[in-house]
């Protein structure tokens, strides 16, 4: 008996797409695919913060002196407001004005960040000064170098790129129907399940 496989219609759900950008996985939760959304969100966020754990704060830097960091931020930003907030935090709280060049930059070893309220500063913005080793001063964080920097970048950029696919999948539910239909067809041939055996999942995919 021939088996008919119904292809899922391609929908358009801007609310799900927006939610997927705001919080990884939230778009799929909105579409009724809670378990799928939780797995996606956990995977993307663990990957992003895992990259920061390996490479430190320096891997998320949209105004870095390193070209690869600046380019990588475009990929990292696809993780959503979390990545953008981390970068904003980095720029505003962990960098200072170099009074010799009048440019904001990250600190090198042997330097200290004097906050706007520091009595040694006297200005309304954070500035970079020479650290006093006797007082245990130093930069607010150590900039990663070499392989840990590369691995940290890799984790955070892949997190963003995967979330971009997630956003598109939430924006166009059922848009990857060809691949899924193929998988369903293979299972039908193997006698594992029949097409449309999971109506709840299918309804969610269609973007109800």
């Amino acid at each position: 008996m021939p088996t008919t496989i119904e292809y899922e219609p391609i929908g358009f759900n801007p609310v799900a797409g927006l939610l997927a950008f705001l919080v990884p996985g939230a778009g799929h939760v909105f579409l009724g695919q809670t378990r799928r959304g939780v797995l996606i969100g956990a995977g993307v966020l663990v990957m992003f913060f895992g990259g920061m754990l390996v490479g430190g704060l320096a891997v998320v830097d949209s105004r870095s002196g390193r070209l690869e960091n600046r380019i990588s931020f475009f990929g990292q930003a696809a993780v959503g407001p979390v990545a953008i907030a981390v970068d904003r935090l980095h720029q505003s709280m962990f960098k200072g004005m170099d009074l010799d060049t009048n440019k904001v930059r990250a600190l090198n070893p042997g330097e200290v960040l004097l906050g706007a309220g520091d009595p040694r500063n006297g200005r309304g913005f954070p500035v970079i000064a020479t650290a006093d080793p006797a007082r245990g001063e130093g930069p607010p964080y150590v900039r990663s170098q070499g392989k840990v920097q590369e691995i940290g970048l890799l984790y955070t950029v892949i997190a963003g790129m995967l979330n971009l696919i997630v956003i598109l999948d939430a924006l166009f539910p059922g848009g990857m129907a060809r691949g899924r239909a193929g998988a369903v067809g293979a299972e039908v041939e193997a006698g594992v399940r029949t097409a449309g055996a999971d109506p709840v999942e299918a309804a969610g995919r269609a973007g109800a």
């Binding site: 797995l39 996606i40 956990a42 995977g43 993307v44 663990v46 990957m47 895992g50 754990l53 390996v54 490479g55 430190g56 704060l57 320096a58 962990f94 607010p140 964080y141 150590v142 900039r143 990663s144 170098q145 070499g146 392989k147 840990v148 920097q149 590369e150 691995i151 940290g152 890799l154 984790y155 892949i158 995967l162 997630v166």
Partner: peptide, 24 residues
């Protein structure tokens, strides 16, 4: 904030990355 001291075992970070990619 600070990077971990793992430059010598950078390759050990790749299997967890592969698992996370597969999870998503």
């Amino acid at each position: 904030l600070d990077p971990i001291d793992a430059n010598g075992i950078w390759w050990a970070m790749l299997p967890p990355l592969a698992i996370l990619i597969a999870v998503v």
